[in-house]
Design a protein around this nucleic acid. Sequence first.
DNA 1: ATCATGAATGTCAGCGCTGACAAGCTAAAA
DNA 2: TTTTAGCTTGTCAGCGCTGACATTCATGAT
Lengths: 342, 342
Amino acid sequence: MTLTPPNSKKPATLDHVAALAGVSAKTVSRVVNRDSNVSAKTRERIERALRETGYRVNQAARSLATSRSYLIGAFMPHLSSFYFAEIFRGAAKACRQYGYHLVLEEFDHGAESVVDRYEQGLRGAHCDALILTPPTCDDEKLLDALDRDGMRYVRIAPSKQIDRSTALGADDRQGVEELVQHLWATGRRSFAMIAGPEDHLAATIRERTFFQTLAELGCDATRLSIVRPEWNEPIADAGREATLRLFRDLQQKPDAIFAFNDELAIGAMAGVRELGLSIPDDVAIAGFDDSYVAQLVWPPLTTIHQPIADLAFRAVGIIAGSAEPRGSDVWLPTNLVVRGTA
Amino acid sequence: MTLTPPNSKKPATLDHVAALAGVSAKTVSRVVNRDSNVSAKTRERIERALRETGYRVNQAARSLATSRSYLIGAFMPHLSSFYFAEIFRGAAKACRQYGYHLVLEEFDHGAESVVDRYEQGLRGAHCDALILTPPTCDDEKLLDALDRDGMRYVRIAPSKQIDRSTALGADDRQGVEELVQHLWATGRRSFAMIAGPEDHLAATIRERTFFQTLAELGCDATRLSIVRPEWNEPIADAGREATLRLFRDLQQKPDAIFAFNDELAIGAMAGVRELGLSIPDDVAIAGFDDSYVAQLVWPPLTTIHQPIADLAFRAVGIIAGSAEPRGSDVWLPTNLVVRGTA
DNA sequence: ATCATGAATGTCAGCGCTGACAAGCTAAAA
DNA sequence: TTTTAGCTTGTCAGCGCTGACATTCATGAT
């Protein structure tokens, strides 16, 4: 065993530490990895040596030996949205807690195939697992590729083949019910919804819950309507146009609008204002996500909070907890946040 | 050399490919790494074998052998802001282009020390280099720790010790000058600025340029004022309060407000509206960053665009381009985007 | 025909760590 | 006292790849 002189620039290895502590490298490895079965005396000696040498694990070597990378991958869509910022924040926080690291792969939804991005990018990073969010979590070709490679993954808010993997999501029903109660209690009686993407399970659930709960409260069916926005960027514009369309086409003008997400809702605010109506007096508006822009606009947006970061946090937790708890898929609650628009 | 049977689950190694192509592993390595000095015939044979086996480099092994990880690290601050989303987007895009991967480390500015986060987190990931943004790029203790470890880093928009490392930034002057010209040309004559953090070089530059350019246009000094917001979250509230304070304290009410960033500007919009003034008729408002919320509010915010993603992209390019081009530090242009508020 | 010359290819150690197993040790059980 | 069982510690190969160096081979110059 040749040792680099202590003043060398090269980082200390297990061998250096072992030599200093007068034990074998393996024993040092045991201490580093918190194995039991190391006597207190030895452990203490080694810990001192560890400190003295400033030892740091060489991940590459460890990975090579164990074939685990302690890396968790995720796709980062082209557009910067609150949803993804939250996902990454939650995931990064969990990674930190569980000793993993988060690797991000850029991905321009629409312009390219996720499968390609996976094969050319993330696969090369040799992550231990991937976190998948909409829309990539419903890409069957991607799932096939992952299964083929034996790459583990956890899906957040999937719409299709929910049982195909461990999956997490939010219970959208709850928040929407709260919202409906609130709108009804504050005297609203004509409702419109700005819908989400048709292939998005959560969107369907939000719609169904919205109308069903209203119906149960005895709302007149002629005072319920839905409008499907054109999905072009920026999303707020889509919301604005949908709103204008709504007021143009409808006999019975709504006094409450619920949008699939906050950006659409903010667009709706612009549209309502253009029509010379005031918020919330003439029209109440509510969004979904409780994104930070909800607090930026004026009046601040009433919206339904969903624990996005928490979902990602738990997804990482599942990955880190080695065992794959298929049964324990998690569905977290959502809740209404009343601000200035409803 | 023992080979795993072809139907095995384990991924192919250089040895497998080599056996299939009837060459040595080293030659395959040459092809994979695009070394010259491989005959066209051999290369072709190897490429076929590569395809047949579905070979993928094992990064851990390569890292161990070369002591490079092809990982680039960055700190992700606690709050999700447009600025950082853009930074990561640009960095991820570049990583993809240069064959690197982006590793994010959560970091709650204010609640903990970056040095700790580095030592307990990112250092363990064994990144080849780090990208540092404000405020971490000005943390001298962090820079000391990095220098001590011999960890490379590129700083974006640093305020202190600019020559200490390779650094990139935007030329804020340019955009501010355009803005001033525009405001002046559209008849504004009383100006106020909502200032940025005092220790932020860019903030100082924006302020100085704003007032200096106005002075050169012959603006009356009594019609220039500045207000320093309290930096509490959400930032928009800070902007709103600062604006209310401004109108309360000032004799000569401003007809144009320039804020350090878009969030402050949006807060200012709320404040101005509360005072019953209209935007842009009574008061023009402009921000800085051209964040996506600038397009969400109504009227859409006039702001100065800075190429945030591009800065990060170039930072990664510098890292990937092995040589450290200290001389070629980059300063990119900014420009005015006129929308509805000024 | 002979010899440089440089291109093409191969050999092999070793990067730092851990899994599997072996060996040494202590203390309780027989 | 001897045996057994359970701790504690050590040995060693090998994860897959590449750098340094050695070897082989073709080619044109002599």
